[in-house]
Simulated scan of single mutants.
Amino acid sequence: MIFASGSGTNAENIIKYFKDSDKAEVAAVFSNKRSAKVLKRAHDLDVKALHFDRDALYHSKEVFNLLKDMQPDLIVLAGFLWIFPKAILHEFHNKVINLHPALLPKFGGKGMYGMNVHRAVVEKKEVETGITIHYVNEKYDEGEIIFQASTPVDPSDSAEDIAEKIHQLEYEHFPKVIENLLFPSENG
């Protein structure tokens, strides 16, 4: 199960990874944006694509009930920008993970996503950055860290250069970390 708000390149990468592996599959992609490209990517890859609004996530329990019916082994937030409801986090304890485009605890929290993070890395003249995959809790980017990978930041790097480096780390590591969480005995 993947939740995403944007273009969905990481969701597409994860779907393809597991289609090729025959170990697991992405049962559905959920998005809070009707026009999000992730929905088309999922549909093109024959994965159920579902749109929901704020009420369905936070008030009516529509999303909660869908998740309970589907019983996912893991819920993956891949560019999903809303805080996740406590009821879902409680029901799926340690089964909701997020990808963050920085080395937490640096550059995390509300508003720290995408290019906002990469611009902050440049402004602070960081010598390295990276990705963090972590469990989701009730606060932005404060859940227990599962995995981090880093990349150097050159003094001449723009935010766009950093974004490309981060995307490469995401594509390489995110599906493998998901696989390790789903099949820990097979992966050491």
Rank of each mutant, 00 (worst) to 15 (best):
K16F: 01
V96A: 09
A28E: 10
A120Y: 08
V121P: 00
Q71W: 01
E91V: 09
M115R: 12
N65R: 15
L103T: 04
M112K: 09
S35W: 01
A87L: 13
K165C: 06
G130I: 07
S21C: 07
I162R: 01
N98E: 11
P85T: 13
G79I: 01
I15E: 03
L99Q: 09
E164I: 10
V122W: 02
S31D: 05
G114Y: 03
F183A: 04
S35E: 13
K139M: 12
H173R: 08
Y140S: 11
N10F: 04
N94C: 10
L67W: 06
E164M: 05
L89Y: 08
K86R: 14
H59A: 08
P72S: 14
G114E: 00
Q71Y: 01
L50E: 15
Y171D: 09
S185V: 09
G6K: 02
I178F: 02
S60P: 11
S21E: 08
R34W: 00
D69E: 15
L50Q: 13
R41F: 01
H59S: 14
L74E: 09
G114N: 04
M112R: 00
I133P: 07
V177Y: 06
K23V: 02
S185M: 07
S21G: 07
S5R: 00
K176M: 12
E123S: 03
A56S: 15
L45A: 05
E12P: 03
Y171A: 11
M1D: 05
A11C: 15
Y135D: 11
I15K: 06
N187R: 15
V38F: 06
F30N: 10
E12H: 04
T132R: 00
H93D: 14
H100R: 07
L67E: 06
H90Y: 10
M115K: 09
K33P: 02
E186G: 05
I146Q: 01
L66C: 08
I131H: 10
T151P: 03
A56H: 08
T151A: 08
V38Y: 02
G79V: 05
A87K: 13
R119P: 01
H90E: 12
I97Y: 11
P184M: 06
F52S: 03
D22H: 13
A4I: 05
K33I: 10
K33A: 08
L66F: 12
V96I: 12
H134Q: 15
K110G: 10
K165W: 05
I14Q: 01
K95F: 11
K139T: 12
A24C: 05
L74C: 13
F183C: 04
H167Q: 10
L74Q: 13
L77W: 02
D69A: 14
N137H: 12
P152V: 03
I178E: 00
V38T: 11
V121T: 05
L169K: 07
F3K: 04
W82N: 14
K95S: 11
V121G: 01
L103P: 00
M112G: 01
F84K: 10
